[in-house]
């Protein structure tokens, strides 16, 4: 049994996991029913700056190092997310956080054309050309559980367009390693 009192000693955390963009929002199959969202492998870095009474400020940077590449090479996308979170230790191993951040979604296209089915024939369509980014503020929240002094797991959520019908959830399930 791991001594939970040893948890959270490391403050600089390097994590890897999976990001689900637009969780339960976009179509997951041919019928149009919502699925688990668009899955990306992610890597993130966070640092806990203790400010007293079990609270710490926790800046957090997430990046998806592997571009989501379409099979025909027509477009690629990736995510960079930044956040500043207030973290509260609920126990020696469990913590919760709440913060704000920014979600940057970048889409790249090589240009050119492709031929696709057009109903009763085929037609030539243009592939996107260049790079475009959508930048959205986020409200961040999440929970973390420290297994040991160095290993932890986190479930984080980035909510975009919180106050409108455009609202969408981007979830991150990750494993973290304390390196400092």
């Amino acid at each position: 049994m791991i001594d939970p009192s040893l948890a959270s000693e490391k403050k600089l955390i390097l994590g890897v996991g999976l990001l689900s963009q637009n969780f339960s929002r976009v179509s997951g199959g041919v019928s149009g029913n919502p699925g688990l969202g668009t899955i990306y492998p992610e890597v993130h870095l966070s640092y806990d700056l203790f400010i007293g009474a079990g609270y710490s400020l926790s800046p957090w940077v997430l990046y998806t190092p592997m571009l989501r590449i379409s099979r025909d090479g027509g477009d690629t996308t990736n995510v960079l997310a930044l956040a500043l979170r207030l973290k509260k230790d609920l126990s020696s191993s469990l913590s919760a956080n709440l913060g704000v951040g920014e979600f940057i979604y970048r889409m790249y296209g090589p240009g050119g054309t492709t031929t696709l089915n057009n109903g009763n024939s085929t037609a030539t369509f243009a592939l996107p050309s260049g790079s475009v980014a959508s930048t959205l503020f986020t409200v961040n929240t999440g929970f973390g559980f420290a297994f040991s002094e160095t290993w932890r797991t986190d479930l984080d959520m980035m909510v975009v367009n919180l106050f409108s019908a455009k609202r969408a959830f981007n979830a991150v399930l990750s494993v973290g390693y304390g390196i400092l």
Binding site: S27, G109, P128
Partner: peptide, 29 residues
């Protein structure tokens, strides 16, 4: 299709043409 929804590909396409850039486009929607 028996549900009206966008796929991620549709979201990518419409975002490529009309990218949302806060705070220019109002924060938090």
């Amino acid at each position: 299709k028996n549900v009206l929804s966008l796929g991620q590909d549709d979201v990518d396409g419409i975002s490529f043409l009309y990218p949302r850039q806060e705070p220019r486009d109002k924060v938090f929607g």
